[in-house]
């Protein structure tokens, strides 16, 4: 019984506590900022997005993104701002044109090439006539039965 009352008490306490404590909500600008920062590389870090990095530069970059968002700039404008200063290097997703083209085209080409190669292989293999597997003799069949039973048991 004391256990139960303790539970009730703590439940009441919890409710009470959560009743007067403020519910915090996330600042929508913060979310937008992090969404943009997620696709930018922190230049001093090693392969880390600006959103996750603890470095000074990343902190500054996050502050700049915030300011620009509050000034009403769009995602594209903000990303372009950093690309103009740091180059394509800051983009975690390489651009579709220019130096990034190869990256987006090659996977498809490789799929076509390897797939085509496999197709040709399979066709050439299926056209080839190989000597038919000789019929199994009675002796063979007996051996197979024995082996099967051994496996099954």
């Amino acid at each position: 019984m004391p256990k139960f009352s303790a539970m009730v008490l703590s439940a009441v306490l919890l409710c009470g506590l959560s009743a007067w404590a403020g519910d915090v909500t996330e600042d929508p600008v913060e979310r937008q900022m992090l969404d943009i920062a997620k696709d930018l590389r922190c230049a001093v870090c090693q392969n880390e997005p600006v959103s996750d990095s603890k470095s000074d530069l990343a902190t500054d970059m996050r502050a700049i993104i915030r300011e620009k968002l509050e000034a009403g700039e769009s995602r594209e404008q903000i990303v372009a701002y950093f690309v103009e200063r740091y180059g394509n290097y800051v983009l975690l997703k390489p651009p579709y044109q220019g130096t990034g083209t190869v990256l987006w085209v090659m996977p498809l080409l490789m799929l076509v090439a390897v797939g085509g190669f496999a197709f040709v292989y399979l066709r050439s293999r299926s056209r080839r006539t190989l000597p038919a597997t000789p019929e199994l003799s009675e002796e063979d069949k007996a051996r197979i039965r024995a082996a099967r039973e051994e496996v099954d048991s």
């Binding site: 230049a43 001093v44 000074d56 530069l57 500054d60 970059m61 700049i64 200063r85 740091y86 180059g87």
Partner: peptide
Amino acid sequence: PDGRLGIELGVYG
């Protein structure tokens, strides 16, 4: 002091 011109210049180190 706040590194803003630094970022304008693409300074990272």
